[in-house]
Every structure is written in C-alpha cells, then in structure tokens.
C-alpha cells in the first residue's frame, strides 16, 4: 500500500495499481478484459480496502478473471457452476466481507443454474457478474444456454433451443438488484458495479461480453457489432457516494433517485422509456417485450431493497463467525452438564 509519486490516489490512499491483479491470459479483445478493467476502476472509485473483498468464480474463461484483478484480495476459483454455494458459505462465515463473483453463461445458465437460483432465493450478499458471450470458449465453441435460437456456429452447428434470459431468471427468483449491460459500455458497467457493490443482497449484472474467437459474427446478439448497434440504455446511471452531493439536474419525473442502505445513491436519468426500476412487474414486462422484439436493453432493470439478507434471516451476530474464539464457540460446562442430565 505504498501510495507513491504522482499517481492519483483514492480516499484510502491507494492507486489503481493497488487494485490490479495478474496479467490476463484471455484472448486479445475479449470482452471479459474490459469488465476486469471496470471492476478495478469501480473498486478504486469506491475506495474499497482490498482486504475486505472476496473474489469468487466458477469455471470457464470468465471465471479465470479474478486472477486478473484485486491481487491483494482473497479469492476462490471454485468449481464449475458452484460459485454460489461456496460464496454462500464464505459470506456466512464472514459477513463483514464484500463479495464480487464472476461467472459465465455456461457456469450460470447451465451447470450452475440451480445454485444461481437458490443463491438469489437466499439473498446472499454478493455481486454476481455474468460475463455472457453465448458460447463455450475453453472447450472451443459449443452453444451455451444463452445462445440465440437459430444461430449457426462453425463448430457447433445450428442452435435449436431458445435462450435463457439471466435477468428474467433473476427477477423470477426475487433478486433485488438486476442489471444488464454491455462490455463495450465501460461507464455503465462501472457505475452498475459500484451500485451493486453497495447493495445489500444479491446483485446480478448480466453483461454481454463478446467472445472474439468463437461468437463475434455481426448477426450474433453477443457480438461487438450487435451491441454497439442495438444497445438501448433505459437510463443513464450515476452512482453517487454517500459523501457526495446528489445534484438533481433534470425536470421532475425524468430522474429516479434510489437511496441505498448505507447512504450512497443511484441516480437514474430516464431516457426513451418511462420506466420505474423498483416495479418488479414492469421489469418482467420490459424483458418480455424486448425478447419478443429483439431489443437489447441495458441498465438497472430492477431494484428492491426490502428483502432481508441471508445473514439477517439467520439472525447471525455482527462479527464474523470465523473470528469467534474458543470461549465463544465452546459451550459452558454448566450448559453441557445440563444437557447431559437430560439423558
């Protein structure tokens, strides 16, 4: 943590360098690398202490990325599709941490679908990023569960099954923070990550992140060209720290201000649609309309802060369970004797 020379520092005196990880081994131009950069930028902007962050992932190209950011944070590159359960355990063991997990469309939409849904059902506090490219990269180009129906790939042939919509699944599971973005939209990705990291509960961000090697043809809904051409932001998103002033810029009704639990604010400037992100029914409707009309909307699709987190549901103490001492963990002799006397 040597804040040195002329590099700018954040509120805890760290430079962006302090949030870097190892060198990426993904393909040049991979959308995932852009997201990695925005995770680094978001953590820097939030002045997060790397010692308080857990980096989690499953298996796949996307799941390699925690090695490429926050080199001073603890992390766990778990099993294919099993990031949710491991994160659940870690966040129960130490509720004071902030967890950011990176998964892919195969890791989430196929092998890990059950765990994904149950994590949201439990409302495990974590940022859950899906780097969604619609294709299996590491095994060289099979269709994933989010691939477009009718899409043709050189290796895998034609995809005959409809895609799973990660955001629709999240809303169905009553997830309280559901967003979609595009890895080419750096600012939106960054603001969403900052908002997600400040949200109390499971925050899902489905980020279309093109695979330049296997799925970047212009007609693919997961390609750069498609994203640049078709992206329709539902709002301009600005994340405002608790210590910053919230300036209302626009006509009444054109902005939605969402105050988060610990003081920060998300400012959503409405664009073409009159959309209320707190309305779950509106979210379902929006996603269905966009599915039917092939519209690629991005932004904060749904936010709801009313659900208790898993730690709250379980009435856990504020301190990490992991730091409980022997005196706190081992029953008293009197309590033990009383139990033995029952037999």
């Amino acid at each position: 943590m040597t804040a040195t020379t002329t590099r700018p520092t954040n509120r805890i005196g760290l430079t962006t360098q302090d949030y870097q990880g190892g060198t990426s081994t993904l393909c040049a131009g991979c959308g995932h690398n852009s997201i990695t950069s925005q995770i680094i930028a978001a953590c820097y902007d939030l002045s997060l202490d790397p010692a308080t962050v857990l980096k989690m992932s499953g298996i796949g190209c996307s799941s390699k990325t925690p090695a490429y950011f926050l080199g001073k944070s603890f992390g766990f590159n778990t099993l294919h599709g099993r990031m949710p359960s491991v994160t659940t355990g870690a966040m129960i063991a130490n509720r004071t941490m902030t967890a950011i997990g990176v998964s892919g469309d195969g890791d989430t939409g196929s092998i890990g679908f059950g765990q994904f849904k149950h994590m949201m059902r439990r409302n495990v506090p974590m940022v859950y990023i899906v780097e969604n490219n619609g294709v299996y990269g590491l095994t060289k180009g099979q269709h994933s569960a989010t691939a477009d129906i009718g899409q043709h790939l050189k290796y895998a042939g034609t995809n005959v099954l409809p895609p799973i919509d990660i955001c629709a699944e999240a809303i169905a599971a009553d997830c309280g923070f559901v967003a979609r973005s595009f890895s080419g939209d750096a600012k939106q990705v960054r603001e969403l990550i900052k908002a997600a990291m400040s949200y109390e509960g499971t925050a899902v961000i489905d980020i279309i992140s093109p695979c330049v090697t296997f799925n970047n043809e212009d007609d693919s809904s997961k390609s750069y060209a498609y994203g640049k051409d078709k992206e329709e932001r539902i709002q301009d998103i600005q994340f405002i720290q608790s210590y910053e002033e919230v300036v209302v810029d626009y006509e009444p009704g054109s902005e939605q201000i969402v105050k988060l639990h610990d003081g920060p604010t998300i400012k959503l400037r409405k664009l073409n649609r009159d959309y209320d992100a707190t309305d779950r029914w509106a979210a379902i409707k929006l996603l269905e309309e966009c599915r039917q009309s092939n519209i690629f909307v991005t932004g904060l699709i749904h936010i709801n802060e009313s659900r208790p987190t898993l730690q709250q549901t379980m009435s856990l103490i504020d301190e990490p369970l992991a730091y409980q001492t022997e005196a706190q963990l081992r029953p008293s002799r009197a309590a033990f004797a009383a139990v033995m006397a029952e037999f």
Partner: peptide
C-alpha cells in the same frame, strides 16, 4: 459447497 466456502473463510 457451502461448507467449503465457510471452512475456507
């Protein structure tokens, strides 16, 4: 998975 996460933490 949950106990692996909890044990690690």
């Amino acid at each position: 998975g949950i106990i692996v996460g909890a044990g690690w933490a």
